[in-house]
Write a protein that binds this DNA or RNA. Sequence first.
RNA 1: GGAGCUGUAGUGUAGCGGUUAACAUGUCGGCCUGUCACGCCGAAGAUCGCGGGUUCGAUUCCCGUCAGCUCCGCCA
Length: 596
Amino acid sequence: MTTSIQGLRRTHGCGELRPVHLGETVTLMGWVSKRRDHGGLIFVDLRDRSGKVQIVFSPEINHDAFRLAESVRSEYVLAVVGQVRQRPEGTENTALPTGEVEVEVQSLRVLNPAKTPPFYIAENVDADENIRLRYRYLDLRRPDMQEALILRHRVTKAIRDFLDERGFLEIETPILTKSTPEGARDYLVPSRVHPGEFFALPQSPQLFKQLLMVAGFEKYFQIARCFRDEDLRADRQPEFTQLDMEMSFVTREDIMDLVENMFCHIFEKVMGIRLPRPFPRITYTEAMDKYGSDKPDLRFGLELTDITDLVKDSGFKVFAGVCAAGGMVKGLRVPGCAHYSRKELDDLTKFAAVYGAKGLAWMALTQEGLKSPISKFFKDEELESITRRLEATTGDLLLFVADQPEVVAQALGALRVEFGKRLNLIDPREFNFAWVIDFPLLEFDEEEKRYVAIHHPFTAAREEDLPLLASEPLKARAQAYDLILNGVEVGGGSIRIHNRENQEQLFSLLGFTQEEARDKFGFLLDAFEYGTPPHGGIAFGLDRLIMLLAGKDTIRDVMAFPKTQSAADLMTQAPSAVTEKQLKELKLKVETMSAK
RNA sequence: GGAGCUGUAGUGUAGCGGUUAACAUGUCGGCCUGUCACGCCGAAGAUCGCGGGUUCGAUUCCCGUCAGCUCCGCCA
């Protein structure tokens, strides 16, 4: 019995068969999704990439095939030749696109048997992530994983078509590149030819794409793998994919306009959805004030309210003290939660504590009046003005955080999102795009006692804010923009610095000596002296975007072979130790070998 | 670096200071010609993640450790 497909040629995908194929003799190849053995009649759901179809084995059609089918099990790989026929009246399966027809099998070839898989190959597996990742090739056999990766292909295809149409060139940049300061930790690759020296894997193609602008390519894009050796999250993997773009002779408006058009194209082609344009814009300051986040989820309200001015002179020392120390007090009105128990409120306090809040004050507007452990510290008119400011009504719970502005934003911003979910204020079908603009150029890093770039060190300041760089650098705004979707940052970019003087000025603000700047970025500074066009660009986290389109909670579900939270590949067992010989060639010594 | 959750037949779960460790599903055997979560009968399948402690006795309580996940820090 051969296990090759010699002499056979697949004619259809399992999921393609319809009544129009009635009477046709077809050859199908695929996996056994399910076998139902009735003794004298065997049904098999045969699955391939295109879907499933029921095939029927009967001793009256082909006795040998029937006998062989008795030995077939889940995930066996079969080739069958048979005739498409109408299912008998009343036995159609409306749950299956192919449910009106079935294939009466005339001959069967078992191309490969299969061990019993460690979990079901089905739509909704509840299998342990451990097992899914270890047997990733089986996990990826599941229809919803296949759909996610097919969706991913269609998105990248739509992107390439769109950008090609507009004169963009896809150009590759090095994976083995130079380690640079700033930003994330680099993944390092030792050089055998240059012992003791290392390449770094790119955190992004940033510098190369700017140099492509210097080179005169004018419109560049790349679907680029990027690497960052930082701790993982549901939406962060050590290697991930960016849609990276850069353009010459453009303004911020040009870029934003192009990007909006591109997303409309993607959504129309892939999702069949027409996005409203233009995308709303919100300044960084407004986002932080109203939502406590630079990537607010705008699908629901629950805005934060500043009450610093109302409480700074109050008798409540906690609030007044924080205000006197340069802090602020903000409140969040949670509709209909005045009934929260002591325990629920304690849990909210713990929730806020994760984000650094030292406490969480609350007021409940119950039927019996205002309940709050802190109300006794306020005069009636103060309570009155607070509840009025928050537009509170009976049944509402008011939550307050008093702290430095960053802590208040983080803690209340997180509570806002939490209640958005708890109170079902979010429409899961909505795709809410927005731009966040006018980010500050710099922030002060308390640990390193120096300025650091919020976007990256190549971002240009807004023209009108250039003078501020010398006087009050923290007040200078950047020509930077982030694209957010449903509270997730899906992309960010900026107009870049394109002359040596401005770039050197920024490096010096960041605390680089001239020598350091020349050592790390000399090639860029040099390039700026050979006729560099004004340019700017943007990069998108492709994995995150696909995750949102696919309705998944983690980018692992839209990547073929992701890593665990400890940055390991459970299938290949990477990373792993290397031989002494390999180390020797690289002139490397490993200090401690943890025995695994 | 830190916090939390999870870890029990292949898989998903239940359980409890003393059990023959339960249920579903899968697997294996038997029966079954219209099922599609097929049905019926039967069987096998567990070092209760690992190590230590408390206890007469630990899967259960405590400590540690490993793995996975979520989050903070970190990261655009």
